[in-house]
Design a protein around this nucleic acid. Structure first.
Lengths: 337, 337
DNA sequence: ATAGAGTCTGTAAGCGCTTACATTTGTAGC
DNA sequence: GCTACAAATGTAAGCGCTTACAGACTCTAT
């Protein structure tokens, strides 16, 4: 059986309260006593039982990190930054990969709340649906702990949002192609999430402001199949085969954009002369393809940093703004003129 | 304040013991009583406090998942599979991104063990060093809980390893190029970890068995800088500029291989005629480049599945083999003849 | 010497649950 | 209707910790 605080107190010749105080860094312990206790703890390599501790402390400095799929390039990066930032501030992360189904995410949240996390971070805009009723689970969770949203916005007490202005970024990306003289621009997207919708509107608004016709087919490839890129390429091919012409592609995601690059290569189209392409997220994929991909950087590192800082302040009782919005920026590379 | 078992017992008109029995699925509760209790639980949306529970049960069904960098393509996928499989079996994952430094990983482990996880999973071969002393932390941790290694092998009581035969895979990959008539093959690697060393030996052995000279420069690019691919390309360029010739590249990682592809493209070399390239991990990058990358699939899904199954059995007291070794396979695409 | 004000430490009452054991209730056989 | 036994439920003692409160000690100012 592992050692308990009683064993340590006995060996150190003090009461358990004193040991507990040393453990919790209380300053009302005489230096010599502290030394003595610490040396015993050290000697026997004692680690306090976290269950018991959690009961007394009402906080184990743990937050639940929910993301749909931690193997997604973008989400993985977000999870990484968040975990690092949380750890640096003394918090640990309970990771949950909830998938994209509403029901799964609900059962996950229930479970995670039973572990008495201090907060819930929902990573990715998938967590906010356009169907209001489907967001009830957020509302419910927020009754118990502060809920932090990364890349999505939802107006509800005790919910804090940190996001990029995806509408503006996509508007700008689209406009940049139009200004370069391209007027038939396809918008590829694969998600009806909060930010997915914002991006789509940004594209549409840009086209409309130049009085151009919008065409935005929805690509339904959520699962992480290895042939995903090929599927995207085929999808675009079908569109072209239907006689729809386009000289520009704006995508809601770098992966979709890579699919477009491969489509162009398959058809002997020159990039960017015959087809200009813009991705989103500025991921490592931008450097893997040839030519290298122009993409929108949505400031993930800044977002995650801000999110954690907001969380820490909320947990310490400060009044904080419910929404922090950053601006993305277009990183020009070789797939655009 | 959240509801406790007392509130529920009161509302249901039974004792807390009965509620507890219902919660734990004891069969010594009358059906009608069970119904009554369950309906109250349902009505008030009660979730038991996991810490209090953990004290009684001596397990919170949580395992610590340590990986160096969850944003790494390969590790992220591993984390994803592991989390899914664990969750499906009623376990949750405490994620820790420890970075690549020994000290950080030690402090992380200490912390995570205090949270009384049921096991520790070390994701990635970085965790096993060739310097025996540096592996002491594994030994220590294994005294407290079973330690599972993914992609590495370490002989120690209470440590269980699930891995792919990287030596054989790299031997085979290298040999396949040699058999295709290429005799100046460069091996690119970026890690001196357990599996890194195995792969390197596989390459060397293959070259030696055909009496060819090996040349394996070490690429030191751990950090996730976005210009990583470019750095790799430059690195290879320098080698070529030094007058070293090579018509084949075997890499310990897809990303390194992509760097090689870009090097070829920059220098107008045809792939695979002038330069053949083989990657490792069979990641999504294989589909992002042009031509598509031949790569070694190291059976990640099978590995993670096996690892969790082994863990579950170990936790339930079964005697299990200390090592499970899978065979990788070469997935032929367009960067090889 | 002694009250008063610190400073340090100990005592004991929880925290919300599980579970051994005690008690009550139900059932069958007479 | 009573006994004997099984089934169902309740009582209460932990689990290992935190922390309010009380008590003991030290030091200063009188």
């Amino acid at each position: 059986m592992a050692l308990t605080i009683y064993d340590i107190s006995k060996k150190a010749g003090v009461s358990i309260a004193t040991v507990s105080r040393v453990l919790n860094g209380s300053d009302s312990v005489k230096a010599s006593t502290r030394e003595k206790v610490l040396s015993v703890i050290e000697k026997y390599d004692y680690t306090p039982n976290a269950y018991a501790r959690g009961m007394g402390l009402h906080s184990l400095r743990t937050v639940g990190l929910l993301c749909a799929d931690s193997s997604d390039l973008y989400l993985a990066k977000a999870v990484y930054y968040l975990e690092q930032e949380l750890h640096a501030n003394g918090y640990e992360s309970l990771l949950c990969c909830t998938g994209y189904e509403l029901e799964d995410r609900q059962s996950y949240i229930k479970l995670i709340l039973s572990k008495k996390v201090d907060s819930l971070i929902l990573v990715g805009s998938h967590y906010v649906s356009n169907v209001e009723k489907e967001n009830n689970y957020i509302r419910d969770a927020a009754k118990q702990v502060p809920v932090m949203l990364l890349n999505a916005s939802y107006n509800c007490p005790n919910v804090y949002c940190t996001l990029c202005n995806d509408y503006a970024s996509t508007f700008e990306a689209t406009s940049s192609l139009i200004r370069a003289g391209i007027d038939d621009i396809l918008y590829l997207y694969d998600s009806n999430s909060y930010s997915g919708t914002k991006k789509l509107s940004g594209y549409k608004a840009a086209m409309k402001s130049y009085k151009l016709a919008a065409y935005a087919p929805y690509v339904n490839f959520y699962d992480g199949r290895t042939d995903q890129i090929e599927s995207i390429t085929n999808f675009i091919q079908e569109i072209a085969d239907r006689g729809i012409t386009f000289h520009g592609v704006v995508a809601s995601d770098d992966q979709l954009a890579v699919g477009a690059i491969k489509y162009a290569q398959k058809n002997g189209l020159r990039i960017p002369e015959d087809l200009s392409i813009i991705g989103y997220n500025n991921s490592m994929l931008t450097a893997c393809c040839q030519p290298e991909l122009t993409s929108v950087d949505n400031r993930l590192e800044a977002l995650t940093h801000q999110l954690v800082q907001t969380l820490l302040r909320v947990l310490s009782g400060e009044e904080m703004p419910a929404e922090s919005v950053f601006s993305g920026k277009l990183i020009k590379r070789s797939t655009t003129p």
